[in-house]
Design a protein around this nucleic acid. Structure first.
Length: 491
RNA sequence: GUCCCCAUCGUCUAGCCUGGUCUAGGACACCGCCCUUUCACGGCGGCAACAGGGGUUCAAAUCCCCUUGGGGAUGCCA
């Protein structure tokens, strides 16, 4: 087999859909693994639905995921690249028209003058009669004179489906055989001369020398038509692989309207592209190495094998992506994590400009294992940036108000001890509280819980003393005082 | 209607091709315990599946057929 060339051919009619992303990912991984070429081609022949904005949005999705293309159309500042252009289907119209003409000239296609009404009448009748074969136009066998007699009446060009049967040798689905009389004489060219999808894909895949057509299994039945077209046009037939589509959590087709259908939704929700890619790869591919699920982008490329592609549709499971995202978050260095959480914090109303880089790195370090998504950072650390204005109600009644006297006493002891500490670090602070626990005989929680509430207003968060250290002496003491005041007025 | 594809724990899956090693393995979720100042992380344990029915065979999750369920195609959309 010659060089592997694969492609993703989305129609830019919206954002980058999660299903399209899966197909792109599998093509991309396959290309990267084998040293092949990954081509991006925009199938924008349906002019009414295409829009330049969509092209932009779609490419942004690919970029975020880190799926880069070796050949493809111009995008943003990047010029078109590759020797098989143009990469926008709309700019390849002449090639498609020539192919249609060739089929017409060779008698492998014909002009059909049926009106839409006539057509739907024929279809209705066929369905009523439970016909077991597909539609053949009466124009299939008309003479040149009959055609000429139509003058300049409007017509479409239909492919003359040959006798026999067609076998799709599918890398995923196996051999799929269909009788040709099940395939209707499909239209390949509209009355205005525009090519129909089937013609365009085949011509483009052939002229771009695509070796493996890897796409969604909604195209499995179309593959038979495409093979007939490849053969009629005298092109070599590429390898096919039809991958199952991505279903939503209810097991239905992933609707465009659903949150998460847009790949970039995951970015706004605080997910790492590595995690999303890792998860999507697992939706239809199993690693050789058993019981392994966590992969970086590079490891994915390394481990990816076409032999392990699955053939049944998979549902998207939010809980599992979340878990995987947490795992990927934990693989980051504190500095890497810091750079990712800073913009999230700023957006969440926490002004990071008042903190040093070292401080922010430390914050990343102590919150790292608490995060499931980047967005969690705000709830985990907003008290570092904002005043504590209220206490978590449930926790406050349990740890503060239930025994206000005791809480006042213990917080007071902590405050006094903290005030005198020379070296403000979490080890020293921990020792101080441990000492108080020992001397008073009260449980650790009797000190720690009120303290956490005083400092953060919340019942959960980063490690107690790590956060105290990071909060700083002055602020910590201030907040303990504030809690004391609160206890005196509410207790 | 016709044609095509799919079918193992709630979910993603291993095993199926090359029947016996499967009292069906892993992961997420869930439950319990441990660790622990909290939450989380981590560790340990538990719950939980071969869609149903016929065959073939000494033996079937694995092979064949039917049924059921899900998905797709059947467009002058892609």
């Amino acid at each position: 087999m010659s060089k592997i060339r694969v492609r993703i051919a989305p129609s830019p009619s919206g954002f980058l859909h999660i299903g399209t992303a899966k197909m792109a990912l599998f093509n991309w991984l396959f290309a990267r693994k084998t040293g092949g070429t990954f081509v991006l081609r925009l199938e924008d022949t349906d002019a009414e639905r295409s829009d330049d904005e969509y092209v932009q949005a779609m490419c942004e999705g690919f970029q975020w995921l880190g799926i880069d293309w070796d050949e493809g159309p111009a995008f943003g500042d990047e010029p078109e690249k590759g020797a098989f252009g143009p990469y926008k289907q709309s700019e390849r119209r002449d090639i498609h028209v020539a192919a249609a003409q060739k089929l017409l000239d060779e008698g492998k296609a014909y002009k059909c003058f049926l009106t839409k009404d006539e057509l739907s009448d024929i279809r209705d009748t066929m369905r009523e009669e439970k016909a077991s074969t597909s539609f053949r136009s009466p124009w299939r066998d008309k003479t040149a004179d009959d055609v000429a007699a139509q003058g300049d009446a409007s017509y479409v060009v239909r492919f003359k489906v040959p006798e026999g049967s067609t076998t799709v040798h599918d890398l995923v689905q196996g051999d799929v055989i269909t009788r040709n009389d099940q395939t209707e004489d499909f239209v390949i060219q509209k009355p205005n001369g525009d090519p129909i999808f089937h013609l365009a894909v085949v011509v483009d895949d052939a002229t771009m020398e695509i070796s493996h057509v890897v796409r969604g299994d909604d195209h499995l039945t179309n593959a038979a038509r495409h093979i007939m077209l490849f053969e009629a046009l005298g092109y070599p037939v590429p390898q096919f692989a039809h991958l199952p589509m991505v279903l939503d959590e209810g097991g239905k087709k992933f609707s465009k309207r659903l949150h998460g259908a847009n790949v970039l939704d995951w970015r706004t929700d605080g997910y790492l592209p590595e995690a999303l890619i890792n998860y999507v790869a697992l939706l239809g591919w199993t690693p050789e190495e058993e019981n392994r699920e966590l992969f970086t982008r590079e490891e994915l490329i390394e481990a990816f094998t076409i032999e392990r592609w699955g053939k049944s549709a998979a549902r998207f499971d939010l809980k599992k992506v979340q878990w995987l995202n947490g795992q990927h978050l934990r693989m980051l260095s504190p500095a890497e994590l810091r750079d990712l959480i800073v913009p999230v914090l700023n957006e969440g109303g926490c002004d990071t400009s008042i903190k040093s880089e070292a401080w922010l790195t430390e914050l990343a370090s102590i919150t790292q294992e608490k995060l499931s998504t980047l967005n969690d950072i705000v709830a985990q650390s907003d008290f570092f940036f904002k005043d504590v204005t209220e206490y978590d109600e449930k926790a406050a009644s349990k740890h503060l108000l239930k025994d206000a006297g005791g809480a006042i006493e213990r917080l007071g002891m902590v405050a006094t001890a903290f005030r005198n500490v020379a070296d403000w670090n979490h080890e020293a602070l921990h020792e101080i509280v441990a000492g108080l626990v020992e001397s008073t005989g009260a449980g650790f929680g009797r000190f720690a819980n009120p303290l956490r509430l005083a400092l953060t207003g919340k019942s959960a968060g980063p490690g107690m003393f790590e956060l105290t250290e990071l909060l700083g002496k002055e602020l910590s003491l201030e907040r303990i005082d504030q809690a004391l005041q609160y206890l005196k007025t509410h207790g």
